[in-house]
Design a protein around this nucleic acid. Structure first.
Lengths: 332, 332
DNA sequence: AATCGTTTTGCAACCGGTTGCAAAACCTCC
DNA sequence: GGAGGTTTTGCAACCGGTTGCAAAACGATT
């Protein structure tokens, strides 16, 4: 059925090593030999078994791509770019869906069984614990969109969520809002916590501004809508920093359905700058997260780690910026 | 570094076969032996190498998940469900991004090199040719969201796009529209072609209704918006069947920006019933595609094929239905 | 033609498992 | 305690490759 090295060797009348060598670059083979082998391989339709070779080389070129964000539209772009980028570098993404997992144990075991060369954890909500579990199993790991830290235990590529919280707060202050609110994603997510910390720390410097906060159940449209509907039952703030864009869009829909309107009565600023944020009907003012750069950098880091597994862990933090659209009133 | 069978065997003072058997279910091992081995394995932190074993068993439990739809939000749900479903059955998805590929050659070779047990092609736009290429390489394949056919050459799970086209046409007729339009996705996509065929064939029975058609460049918001803006420059139809929901949403945004309004002046019916279609601010009338069922069925079929590789190809077609929301005017 | 250095080749062991087969161990029954 | 049947175990070969090493082939030089 499937053609093996041995058969090619027999047909070409050479040793198995010779065949192996023609398919390993950097190996010593004469031109004559190479031609003979390639001919036989072509005739038989041979292509080497990557897994068998991984046994001796210790390299599978498989990269575990681990995530639990299968509901946030930005992750489609994330998967698109990761898969493309890995493929371009001759690496294969083994996708792991962690949506329902609460401990890393099983995934670590599974990815070890498949001898992945490395793991990319792509999630802004998973605790650092997950990435660490891979490191402890001696699997090179980079945590994309992970919690930044000045003393990271694993490689982290992402943004400074605390700073983003501050940035949002500064933007609301600058626009002259007097009552502002933080409407976070799920409280357990590290990104929520950090954005919250940043937002509140900046607001602490503005005692004259009344600041409130609450958390939605998830980073989702419905959760954002529900939470905003709840807030609208009493006197809402004049502007909210929402945990992310999809949450913001949910909140906007709630405002649309109410007696209030955006940005006249209530302002919204989101975070991510996902594609939909620029849809004309949404037109969301938001903080841009440089997703493309984060992913490229993650891949580069991964590739580097394959050569130098014990690289000293580093945090690569990319700056964010406010994208002004139509959901905040102009500065006075 | 990584613990092997041999080390466990030595520590337990038994043969390598014994260790292998304790980790293979259905193999003959005494309780005493099993306990001894499991203890040693636990002490050493052993877990078997799935790839090494695949060499002899011929099973990798890897499933190629091939797609080129990394821009349509419904595919996030598709990936979510496929990965979950495969994982639950102890299969591992190897993700392949075909966005920029035009021929199946390279992917087939790659997936063969990794000895995948099967391939799921998840795409409504790839030509049947792609799925066939895998079959010809003797890899079990199911084409999810593929073009249905009464004489399929590979397993296909999806909807009857021709019938969907008819269904949309009937719906517009029923509502009493006198000038209707088909605004398709990219003309090369099989789903576009079939929906077009169905739509036009139904309209052919209604000569009194004026029917026009055009195609957008992609299944995307921007493409839909651009195409609708173009249509609005001359006299638009009273209602359009748009290639899919994301296209519809783009079209809606164009209408919003124009002097017309939806559903008063122009009606829209989409296809897919993606999550956003029910967002309050969108509220799109659309044809529901039973994605969940299609994926579950695809996975079941895949699993069945792993046991019976030469199953006779079948097409599993799921019925669709119109979901009435707010973008078509009521029937007179 | 012999010598020497370099390149190419094949042998054989190995990577981490599985499995058919025969021997060993265990049970049951008389 | 021994015969006969069943279960468990280990041996050794194998899966499809890679690779260190030494022998073979080659090429240049004298």
């Amino acid at each position: 059925m499937v053609v093996t090295l041995k058969e090619v060797a027999e047909r070409a009348g050479v040793s198995r090593s010779a065949v192996s060598r023609t398919f390993t670059d950097g190996a010593s083979v004469s031109d004559k030999m190479r031609r003979k082998v390639e001919k036989a391989a072509r005739d038989l339709g041979y292509s080497p078994n990557a897994l068998a070779s991984s046994l001796t080389t210790g390299r599978t070129k498989l990269i575990g791509l681990v995530s639990n964000n299968f509901h946030n539209p930005i992750f489609l772009q994330v998967f698109d770019q990761f898969t493309k980028g890995l493929q371009e570098r001759d690496l294969r993404p083994l996708l792991v869906n962690l949506s329902s997992e609460t401990n890393p144990e099983a995934s670590v075991r599974m990815l070890r069984q498949y001898s992945v060369d490395g793991v990319v954890v792509a999630s802004s909500t998973l605790p650092p614990l997950f990435a660490k579990a891979f490191r402890e199993a001696d699997i090179p790991v980079v945590h994309s969109f992970g919690r930044s830290s000045s003393a990271p235990e694993v490689h982290v590529v992402g943004i400074d969520n605390v700073e983003c919280g501050r940035m949002a707060a500064r933007e609301l202050v600058r626009r002259g809002y007097k009552r502002v609110g933080f409407m976070g994603g799920p409280e357990a997510a590290t990104s929520t916590q950090d954005r919250f910390t940043g937002f509140m720390s900046e607001m602490a410097a503005h005692k004259e501004i009344q600041t409130s906060y609450s958390f939605a159940q998830a980073y989702s449209y419905q959760a954002g809508r529900r939470e905003m509907l709840r807030l609208l039952k009493t006197t809402p703030a004049e502007a909210y920093f929402c945990g992310d864009d999809v949450l913001s869009i949910g909140a906007l829909s709630a405002i649309d359905d109410s007696a209030y309107s955006c940005p006249q009565d209530i302002g919204i600023i989101g975070l991510n700058d996902m594609e939909m944020a620029q849809w004309e009907s949404i037109n969301l003012t938001t903080i841009h997260q440089p997703i493309r750069e984060i992913i490229n950098s993650s891949i580069e880091l991964m590739v580097a780690m394959l050569d130098t597994p014990n690289r000293y862990p580093e945090a690569r933090i990319f700056p964010c910026s406010v994208i002004e659209r139509g959901t905040l009133r102009p500065a006075p």
